[in-house]
Nucleic acid binder design. Structure first.
Lengths: 212, 212
DNA sequence: CTGACATATGAACAATGTTCATAGAGCTTC
DNA sequence: GAAGCTCTATGAACATTGTTCATATGTCAG
């Protein structure tokens, strides 16, 4: 066997990494359903049983992939926030930011379709709770919206704003989800973009009216 | 023998019905993942192999369940439309109808959680196309929204209105989907109701503004 | 009643996730 | 470097699934 002598813990981490990579590329190539133990072992260059020395089962591996995808998604959204511009008014700027955030979400989903879909498609066996760290990772997405939302509805109490943020996120998520859903005939990307602009703008305007 | 174009005797139709019932109740009780061949056969009171005399595979059976669920959903939404009231203006009435439609969607999803979820959770193996009749069944949902939408955006050309209807549906779908998503901590039903009212109203108002 | 066709059956197969007895790698001690 | 000890990696074996197919059973015309 070639390879430099590595400490056991390094080897473990390395294997973990390789398995996540293998699962990622399988998902991206043929969807969540193609994550099978034997192909995974082959791609990661390890024995079948080795998988279970670093992950308790395939679900745990898939959640590790999800965590990585969420990190990348967050980074992608952060990038979009930096593209600020001077705007007429603070509410105008906030509205603009909301739209950008939504478009960035669409871009990510489009560019990494299968991985993004796997995030929501994957379900744990009945009765098994989602780990707290994964829930927290997802909750951070809502917080991003919440921050941008602040100037639009300044009078709204914090908890209600959190709920509103979740709702806005959900609405955009629905647009992207069904827009890219092949079951319904995928929408043209530019059409989808326009629709997101239209709906998010409409929501933002509608929200402003209720401000007082 | 390829395909199953056998003559539909009464016994066959009966078995088909029983299998759909069995699958339905399994889904409602323990989710899509619990639809397994052997329990199905037992519940339907038939032999294992009998399943494959009326359905080409389990996916076909699940799609039959989906068709039934869609029919019920449609009926449920139609009921909500009849609850009309005299309103101040035509646009006011349309806005109200949109909200009712969305709330009816939420009610159905809440009352038949697992079946409703199965509608979107189920995925065919890669490369197998969704049958046209199922696509058509789903498309009818969009049409319902489209009809209600007409008075709100009368100047919009037909095709664009169809797209807008799909977008509105998608947004509401997203709200319901993530609102009932246990992965994220389910929202209280009344909160979710309020949020749907808020968001749909906001969208409707926002759309009206762009009318001219 | 008999033969010919149709239908139902469940044992057997293939694909899959997971386990575990075993082989072997790495480390310590002499 | 040999011997012993611990910890890891291995893949054959098992359990659970969807699906098939040779066979048993039913049906009905003549």
């Amino acid at each position: 066997m070639i390879g430099l002598p590595t400490l056991p813990s390094n080897r473990r981490l390395d294997l973990k990494e390789r398995l996540i990579d293998a699962a990622s590329s399988l998902i991206e190539a043929h969807g969540l359903g193609s994550v099978k133990a034997r192909p995974l072992a082959e791609r990661a260059g390890c024995a079948l049983g080795a998988i279970y020395t670093v992950f308790s089962d395939l679900d745990a591996l898939i959640m590790a992939v999800s965590a990585r995808t969420l990190t990348r998604l967050e980074a992608h959204l952060d990038k979009s926030e930096r593209e600020d511009e001077a705007s007429a008014s603070p509410t105008e700027a906030a509205r603009q930011k909301l739209v950008w955030l939504a478009l960035a979400y669409l871009d990510f989903a489009f560019a990494h379709r299968a991985s993004w879909r796997a995030l929501f498609e994957h379900r744990l066996p009945e009765g098994r709770p989602v780990p707290d760290w994964l829930v927290a990772d997802q909750a951070r997405l809502f917080e991003k919206v919440e921050k941008v939302l602040q100037p639009l509805v300044p009078q709204l109490p914090g908890p209600e704003r959190a709920i509103l943020a979740r709702s806005l996120f959900s609405a955009v998520h629905g647009l992207v989800l069904l827009g890219l859903e092949e079951k319904l005939g995928v929408m043209a990307f530019t059409t989808l973009r326009d629709e997101i602009v239209r709906i998010v703008s409409a929501m933002a305007r509608g929200l402003e009216e209720t401000r007082t």
